[in-house]
Amino acid sequence: ALNRGDKVRIKRTESYWYGDVGTVASVEKSGILYPVIVRFDRVNYNGFSGSASGVNTNNFAENELELVQAAA
């Protein structure tokens, strides 16, 4: 299972961040479909780089994520 702070690569092909590595911000335990919230260094097309207006978190299912580096 994934944990907060883990570095993960995104495998959801239609995602803006496909192939990117993000950090797990939190994992919901309530049984929702996309329980893993991942935070990225770059914002998506809703904002400009360096601006706070873009979105830099997204929810994924565990099977859409590949663990790159476990949290220390």
Score class of each variant (00 low, 15 high):
V8T: 00
S51R: 03
D20I: 08
R9Q: 04
T23P: 00
S26C: 14
V68E: 03
S15W: 02
D6L: 04
A61G: 09
P35K: 13
R12G: 02
K7F: 08
S26Y: 13
S15G: 02
R4G: 04
L65C: 05
T57S: 07
P35V: 13
F40H: 00
N59M: 11
N44Q: 14
V24D: 00
G22N: 01
E28Y: 10
F60N: 01
V55K: 06
T57L: 08
R39K: 10
G5D: 03
Y45P: 15
A61Y: 09
S30R: 11
V55Y: 09
F60C: 03
L33V: 08
S53F: 11
V21Y: 04
R39F: 13
R42I: 05
W17P: 00
N44R: 12
N58K: 07
G22C: 05
K7W: 07
A71K: 08
T23Y: 08
G54P: 07
F60I: 00
F60E: 02
S30H: 09
S53W: 08
S53Q: 12
K11G: 04
S53Y: 10
A1T: 13
F48I: 13
A61N: 11
D41S: 10
K7C: 13
N3D: 06
G54Q: 04
F60W: 01
P35L: 14
N56M: 07
A71F: 13
N46D: 15
V24L: 01
G22S: 02
N58V: 09
A72C: 14
K11C: 12
G5T: 02
N56L: 05
G31V: 09
G50R: 00
A52V: 10
T13P: 13
N59F: 07
G47S: 09
P35D: 06
V24C: 04
Y18N: 03
G19C: 12
E66Q: 06
K7H: 06
N46T: 11
A25P: 02
G22F: 03
T23Q: 05
E14H: 09
V8W: 02
L33Y: 04
G50N: 09
A61E: 05
E64P: 00
R42L: 05
G22Y: 05
D41T: 13
R39W: 08
F60G: 01
K7L: 12
Y45M: 15
W17T: 00
S49V: 08
G31C: 14
A61K: 08
G31K: 08
R9I: 07
A1S: 12
G50S: 07
S53R: 04
F40C: 03
A72W: 13
N56G: 04
T13R: 13
L33K: 11
D20M: 09
L67P: 03
F48Y: 11
E14S: 14
E14T: 14
S15I: 04
Y45T: 15
V8A: 02
L67Q: 03
G54I: 05
T13E: 10
A25N: 06
Y16F: 14
E14L: 08
D20S: 07
D41M: 09
V68F: 04
V21I: 13
F60Q: 00
Y16D: 03
A71C: 13
T23C: 11
N3I: 14
V68H: 02
P35C: 15
N3R: 14
K29V: 09
I32R: 09
A72F: 13
E66V: 06
G19L: 10
F60S: 00
E66A: 05
A1K: 13
E14V: 15
V24E: 00
I10M: 01
N3C: 15
N59R: 12
Y34G: 04
K11S: 04
R39T: 08
D41Q: 13
L2C: 08
V21T: 07
D20K: 10
N46A: 06
G54W: 07
G5I: 00
Y45S: 15
N56H: 06
R4N: 06
G19Q: 09
V55S: 10
V27F: 12
L67G: 01
N58F: 10
P35S: 13
A25H: 12
E14C: 14
V36H: 01
V36E: 00
R4L: 11
I10F: 02
A25Y: 12
V68K: 01
S26T: 07
S49M: 10
T13S: 09
Y16C: 07
G54F: 06
Y18T: 03
L65V: 09
L65D: 03
W17V: 01
S15R: 01
G22L: 05
R12P: 02
R4V: 13
S51E: 12
A52T: 11
N44T: 05
E14F: 10
Y16Q: 05
E28T: 08
N63G: 08
S15K: 02
S51A: 11
N3G: 12
E64C: 04
V27W: 04
S26W: 13
V36D: 00
L2K: 01
L65Q: 01
L2Q: 01
A25E: 15
V38Y: 00
V21C: 06
Y18Q: 02
Y45Q: 15
N46I: 07
V21N: 01
N59Q: 07
V55R: 06
K7N: 03
S51V: 09
G22R: 04
V38P: 00
L65H: 01
K7T: 07
N56I: 07
L2N: 01
E14W: 14
I37W: 15
V55D: 07
G19F: 10
N58I: 07
G54L: 11
S53T: 13
K7E: 04
V38K: 00
G5F: 05
V36W: 04
S51Q: 10
K11E: 03
G50W: 09
K11Q: 07
L33R: 14
A52C: 15
Q69V: 08
D20P: 01
W17K: 01
V24K: 00
V68A: 03
I37K: 12
N3K: 15
T13K: 11
A25K: 07
S53H: 13
S51L: 09
I37G: 03
V43F: 15
V36A: 00
G50H: 07
V43H: 08
V38C: 04
V68W: 06
V27Y: 09
Y45K: 15
V24S: 01
K29A: 12
I32T: 13
N46S: 09
I37S: 09
N59V: 07
R39E: 07
